[in-house]
Structure formats: C-alpha cells, structure tokens
Design a protein around this nucleic acid. Structure first.
Lengths: 230, 230
DNA sequence: CGGAACATTGACCCATGTCAAGTGTCGTGG
DNA sequence: CCACGACACTTGACATGGGTCAATGTTCCG
C-alpha cells in the first residue's frame, strides 16, 4: 500500500456522523453560493457548520503579504467549519457553484444534550481532520514537486472511487493556482509537473481541468519518490 | 501583533483541562524515559495518553525513504497522543530525559461517563491542536528559511514567557536536525540561518543549544517576511 | 468577435539542498 | 588528568529544483 504517500485531501472533511446529527442536517436550511463566493471568512463568528451537498469549497489561510495556504478542499459530504471555536480560523470560498446545508452551532449544542455520544463523534471527526492535516504537512514539508502532484492526483482518484465515481478519469474542480497553494508550489511548477507526467505517459489531459490516469502503478511510484520505476 | 507569523509549537500540545481529568492525571502513574527513547511509535495500540511533566518529546512521522517530519514538540504541561484512535499515528520520542504522567485511555472513558463535559473538553483540546498544526503548515508551505527560523525562535520565546521562564534567553532542547525536520529545512540551512541571525545582531548563541534574543522587534520583522526592517 | 481568465512554456536566477571538510564539546576510560 | 572517540554543529563549494518574469496559447462566455 502507499498509505504514507497519499496527499491528504480531507483535512477539513469528515465522514458523516449518524443519529441526532444526521437528523439535524436533514432539516437544516440549504444555502447556495456561486463560484468565488465566501461561505465564511477568517474572523467571522462561528454561527454555523456547513455540509457540502454539491460543488466544492477551498479552505485556506493567508499570510500578511498575500501568500495563501489552502489547508483542504470540501467536497460533497464533507463538513466544514468544525473545530472553529467562537470564530472561524480560516476562509472558506466556493471554487464552483455550491450548495450547502447550514447547521447552527446552537442547535448542535441542543443535539449534543439529547445525544451524549455526539460530543465524542465530533471529537473523532476532528481527529480524522488532524490526521489528514498532518499528512498534508508531511507532503508539503518533505516531498518534491512531482511527488506532491502525483500524490494529489492519486488522492483525488481514491476519493472518487470511494464516492462511486470513475477513479481513472475525472474533473479537477480547482485551478492550478488552487493546487499550487494547496501543495506549496507555484502555478508554473504545477503546470510543468502536469506536462511532465503527461510526457511520461502516466496521465492524459484531454482538457486542462480533466485528468485521465493512464498508469496508476507508475503514478504511485512517482508519489512515493522512486527515482527509477521499472 | 504577529499572530499570523508565529510558528506553531503546540501542535500536539494542549492547555490543561480541569476537573475529573485533572484528578485522573494527579493519580496517574509516572514514567521516566531517557533521551532518544520512544514514548510510543507509529502503529502502537493507543493504550495511554501522556502528559509531559519534565523534559521534551518530539512527535514525528517518517516517509518510506527516511525523510522525517516533526509535527510538534511536547513540553512540560503538554498532552500527547490525543486524537490517535486505536493506534498511534506517529512516533513520540524523548529528546532529553523526560518524565510523563500516563493516563490509560480506559480510565479516560470512565471519567467521561462521570463528567459529560469531558468529551467536549477533549474536542476543544483537539481543535487547538488542529489550529496549531495548520499554522505550522502555513509556515512550512509558504515561508523562507529565515522566516521559519525566526518564527520558531519567537514561538519558543513566547512559550517560555507563558510558563514563567526567561523569554529572552533559553535553551534549545532539540538538535539542529530536529529543528530542520520540524521546519522542513536541512541541518545545514538551519545552522546557516542561525549564523545569519547572529551576524545581523538579532540573536546570540553563547552555546550552540542556548539562544539569546537581542532584538525581538527585528526578529519579528524577519519572521513576518519584511525585507528591510528599519 | 473580443476580452478575461486560466494555462502553458521558456529563459533565467536564486534559495536551499548536497557533499565534504573542519571544529567544537562532552563523556569515557586509560 | 588527559586522550580519545562520538556527536553535534559549522562552514565552504557546488549543484539543482523550483521560483520569477515574461510571452504565448487556449477556453469560455458575454
């Protein structure tokens, strides 16, 4: 397995807890946001958590001089805003038209009173986020550009597989800039790396935002830092 | 303030929760580990959480080829192992002789039954870790070597201040290799950066593992990426 | 059709990594 | 008390991956 080599894709995402929580979600109000619209911004009071229904959201922090670190993407099924006590610690911005279920934190507290295991479930959910964030840190701290991009594509592929979509060919909802700010690379390096993977025959890019994984084994080798894959 | 520029030092550390939890800790058994000894390793079943009493612990993950990412240091007062469900997701290795309080997770569950707010406290503790880990990611993903090292020293200084020790001059419990693996730099770059800060008159190094912060304002400027500080 | 936004590509450069000596500093044992 | 070895740290010379700047292509949408 290549578990250690995966690029974390769910730092702020969470498997769906069930029970009282699911019930709250089912009756939660729906919100639509356009691409580039903010779901919330850093410093906003944490009034709601959100579950992505359709679309995709980028979660990021910015440095004073504008450098940006995307800490995760929210895809359908993912919960965002979790762990932000009092006020949000980062920005959540839609990267395509998106629908969200809005869950008031007040009602969450109410649910917690009825369902004593809810607190523990939230803890577990947060533990998964933390694990994913640390994996991403391992990636941005220690890996080469090729390893990062290869791992990123594999993580997307596996996520697609889990949600019953095609793991071999799929759309990239985010721009090269988003990928760069996630992996700690520039737009140009991301683009060049895609080109390199393409010329290695490992992937195809029928459109700039659509990838086809041609040789997954080789891609895994590249993600794991093997210099010469046979 | 320079909050955004701080290098997170408490990714796996936690302010002390009180109540039933504190009580459990007070009667928890004490364990001594020597420098370089493991507290636990990745894959070990999570039997205990630990609170550092004295000494220091490095928490890290390793890639297949040996590259290492330290995700945080545990200092006195910090809780380590939190969030690791079932088995530990990283290694915890003492970097100096260390004493730890050992808290069986079974007894933690027992406490949780008596104190329904405990689950929520653990959630909050984990939320703080997550926030710290994301800050560190922002650092390793986006900052230059000088910014990283300057931010690291400031974070250590502030931690010392909080625990009532001298924020201007203190020991570095970790080696250059540890600092490098934490900040995503090589030993040599860390060493050179220390030398650079020294020759800028911002710090002094009376011993290689003892720092004196001479010009904190300047250091903050460097940590924030200001090219020319006046 | 035209323009905006995104992506690709090339040329160049620099920060940091790599490799290789040195230089302390400490602890141990003679 | 000194000699030695082990380790950690520093420093230098050099290589290089990826950043920067700039030009060009492509896609999409009004």
């Amino acid at each position: 397995m290549h578990t250690a080599s995966q690029v974390a894709l769910k730092p702020v995402a969470v498997a769906r807890p069930s029970g009282a929580f699911e019930q709250s979600l089912a009756q939660a109000s729906l919100r639509r946001v356009e691409a580039k619209e903010f779901v919330f911004a850093e410093g906003d009071p944490t009034t709601h958590l959100y579950r992505v229904e359709t679309g995709a959201v980028a979660l990021y922090k910015v440095l004073a001089d504008g450098r940006r670190q995307i800490v995760g993407f929210g895809y359908p099924g993912d919960l965002i805003g979790l762990g932000d006590q009092g006020e949000h610690l980062m920005n959540a911005q839609a990267i395509k038209p998106t629908r969200l279920r809005c869950l008031p934190v007040a009602s969450l507290r109410h649910s917690a009173a009825k369902d004593p295991t809810l607190g523990f479930k939230l803890y577990e959910a947060l533990a998964r986020e933390l694990a994913a964030t640390r994996d991403l840190m391992l990636t941005t701290g220690q890996r080469s550009a090729t390893e990062r991009v290869a791992g990123f594509l594999l993580a997307l592929s596996r996520r697609n597989e889990r949600s019953g979509r095609d793991p071999a060919e799929f759309e990239l909802p985010m721009t090269r800039a988003d990928i760069g700010d996630f992996l700690g690379l520039t737009i140009e390096t991301v683009s060049r790396t895609f080109t390199k993977l393409k010329s290695l025959g490992v992937i195809e890019l029928p459109l700039s935002n659509r990838v086809k994984l041609v040789d997954v084994g080789e891609l895994e080798g590249l993600a794991d830092g093997e210099k010469h894959v046979c």
